[in-house]
């Protein structure tokens, strides 16, 4: 009866082992590149902090970032605050819009509407950020910000924040939509069978069940807003002092990196090394956020798994 039973391992063919090697190599390459980046950032950043011109204390407490001035000050505070400020404006725009479009798409839209809206979202996600930047500077600023908010400058945080917000709507909408779709349909049926409306089902059953994914999408969106460069460089300005007025120009970490690297700062100077200190600061901020989002997703996913 078991005549043809064969449980011995089959020999791996050469091509197969090559493919296996290639797959492994690709996975390791990603890790190696990340390590190399962190290593470069770190070594240069250490150079920066060992420079007699700067102190760690100044870096974290001074309220100006003027590396190219005669008497340079290297205070990262205005940069961090600008970065968070603009990211916050972006979140105020994108969280509700992204989440509501996800709820609409997964709970209310017919299949045909979905078929139209999804590709449009993808187009929005594919617009180069430099386009958003000029859109912010040449359209949002004069037509919205300066018209409705008196005292707004040509470069201002509001306009940059709005544009960054629009840019991350698709990210939030699509991840939240996936999260809502991942909730078992039987929950929706169970809720409707109790005589609840679609609206209540969406808000009270589906939304809480998809919460982990939705929070993950928020954190990811926030972390993209923090790392966004082009829009804030074009529309947000380069005001090197601590400033909390969103009508005025600000200076994000990313745009100060752009600025220093675009200027002819010679290799090895303090200003040049400062780039890497900023790089590692930004890296740590987004890294922590990503870990946090991963943790949230994991924690809640377990709770709702069935």
């Amino acid at each position: 009866m078991y005549k043809n039973l064969n449980l011995t391992k089959t020999k791996t063919k050469p091509l197969e082992s090559f493919v296996k090697f290639f797959i492994k190599f690709s996975a390791f390459a990603a890790i190696l590149i990340s390590i190399a980046i962190v290593f470069t950032l770190l070594t240069e950043a250490i150079n920066f902090f060992q420079d007699p011109e700067v102190t760690i204390r100044e870096y974290f407490t001074a309220t100006r970032w003027t590396p190219t001035f005669k008497n340079p000050v290297y205070g990262v505070l205005p940069l961090i605050s600008s970065t968070l400020y603009i990211a916050l404006i972006a979140c105020i725009i994108s969280f509700p819009l992204g989440l509501f479009s996800a709820i609409y798409l997964s709970e209310f839209a017919t299949r045909n509407t979905r078929k139209v809206i999804k590709p449009i979202m993808e187009i929005l996600a594919g617009v180069p950020t430099v386009v958003f930047g000029y859109f912010a500077l040449n359209w949002i600023t004069p037509n919205i910000v300066q018209r409705f908010i008196p005292g707004s400058g040509v470069f201002n945080a509001i306009s940059a924040g709005i544009a960054v917000g629009i840019m991350i709507i698709p990210t939030i909408a699509s991840i939240s939509d996936d999260a809502l779709n991942a909730v078992p349909k039987s929950l929706r049926m169970g809720s409707l069978a109790l005589g609840s409306t679609r609206r209540i089902t969406a808000l009270k059953i589906m939304l809480p069940a998809a919460l982990s994914g939705i929070i993950a999408s928020f954190i990811l969106g926030f972390s993209r807003a923090i790392g966004e460069t082009m829009i804030v460089t074009i529309a947000g300005g380069q005001y090197p002092e601590l400033n909390l007025d969103p009508r005025k120009a600000m200076y994000t970490i990313t745009s100060s990196i752009v600025n220093v690297s675009l200027g002819d700062t010679p290799h090895g100077t303090t200003a040049y090394n400062a780039l890497f200190a900023l790089g590692i600061t930004l890296f740590i901020m987004t890294f922590v956020l990503n870990i946090f989002s991963d943790y949230i997703a994991r924690k809640y996913r377990k709770e709702y798994e069935q």
Partner: peptide, 13 residues
């Protein structure tokens, strides 16, 4: 008025 119980238990989380 007309309730329904499904094949697979589907309690809310």
């Amino acid at each position: 008025r007309i309730g329904m119980v499904f094949q697979k238990p589907n309690p809310f989380p």
